[in-house]
């Protein structure tokens, strides 16, 4: 289905199941970018490392790491150290996102000016520019 959706000028953003099983079955239809979302916790970084390694070895697409729920410089450094050769986008911990999720509202609607939303807007812009280049 994903393979049939592609059309000129169109952009597909797919949210995959946790883990690697589903994304690795994309094997025959590589994507432009695989965004590996991690939190600065030991378990999440370990899972993210495996995901990035597998995606790279499978040649699925360029890996961009999103460091989510980053509280401070130590959090950011922990993620960068785990992915020394990947582009890392930092999304700060943001109470506005937590509140929006508890209310079942999209953060973009509930808090368009929140720092976390701004960070994701920045990531989208960077990905679009890279695509156009």
């Amino acid at each position: 289905m994903l393979g049939q959706l592609e059309q000129p000028g169109g952009i597909i953003v797919a949210d995959f199941e946790a883990g690697l099983g589903t994304v690795l079955r994309l094997g025959d239809t590589p994507v432009d970018v695989v965004v590996v979302v991690v939190e600065p916790t030991a378990a999440s970084l370990e899972v993210g490392r495996r995901a990035a390694e597998s995606v790279t070895l499978a040649g699925l697409g360029r890996v961009v790491v999103v460091a989510n729920r980053v509280r401070d410089d130590a959090d950011e450094q922990r993620v960068r150290a785990a992915f020394p050769s990947c582009e890392v986008a930092v999304v700060p911990e943001d109470e506005a996102v937590v509140t929006a999720e508890r209310q079942g509202v999209a953060p973009l609607d509930a808090a368009p000016d929140a720092p976390a939303v701004g960070a994701l807007a920045g990531l989208a812009t960077r990905l679009l520019r890279a695509q156009a280049a």
Partner: peptide
């Protein structure tokens, strides 16, 4: 056992 690599 934990997953590792693309052809696990």
């Amino acid at each position: 056992g934990k997953a590792r690599g693309p052809r696990w």
